[in-house]
Amino acid sequence: MTEASARMVKYAPGRMPSLSPFHFTMIVAAAALVLVSIGNVSPSLERLSDGLPRMANLVGRMMPPNTDPDFLWRVTLRLAETFQIAIAGTAIGVILSLPIAWLAARGVTPAGVFYWFFKALISLFRTIPDLIWALLFVSAVGLGAVAGTMTIIVDTIGFCGRFFAEAMEDSDKEPQEALEAIGASRFSILFGAIIPDVMPSMINTALFALEKAVRSSVVLGLVGAGGIGQELKVAFDLFQYQNAATIILAIFIIVLVMEHITDRLRAKLG
């Protein structure tokens, strides 16, 4: 072995990182968990071969999609309602997220050590799935769009609250210190230094929240929280598959259009 090779063996990192017994055990356990999960709940080849003809049959019954003008008008109205749920829910959610994120942002919060309470509140809003929130609100305020809007509000606070708080925590500290030194209040510092600094990130997050809200508001109707989902449920319940096909196509188009608009806005702001 030449001197250079010997030095390389001594100092250069190996091709593969060495694993401790603990890390090796963890990797084996994780792999076992994945394999057991796949074995228990993923579709078997037998189930797939049985299901595919049924799926083909269902798609066949969906064709052609219903294009009756009265039905299309009804779908349009339901789509408009879905949009309204998404837009109203996101707008109110974003506005409410702002103070909650401020209170939850470590190093910025005026709540001192109690910032964790607001962090926990945001986590609660985020970790409970939107369909469960929808079920709760339908029970509380009844069937319809109001329950859907309330669901989107809570979901948006969970989503935006987290990202707004993280952006505020990472915001440039020097302007904040400069304003604090001249006696600016925490509230003034929020509006004078923090929000201008994190505005692009907040707008980005809000646009993602809107995209997410449009997708969510489509399915909320399945549990009675208004919007196009309610129409889709009725179509499936009454075996009106051609109606269902039209609705699914409409949902596809609306989500696609929404993503295109938000992508363009993001590119413009970036």
Binding site: E174, G183, P196
Partner: peptide, 27 residues
Amino acid sequence: HGLVRRLSALSNVVQGRLGQPGGLRAV
């Protein structure tokens, strides 16, 4: 300097008043 990067020079200078009573209008 500790300026707010995304604001104009004029806004940054106006912010010198933030500590005054009613200073919120200086954001």
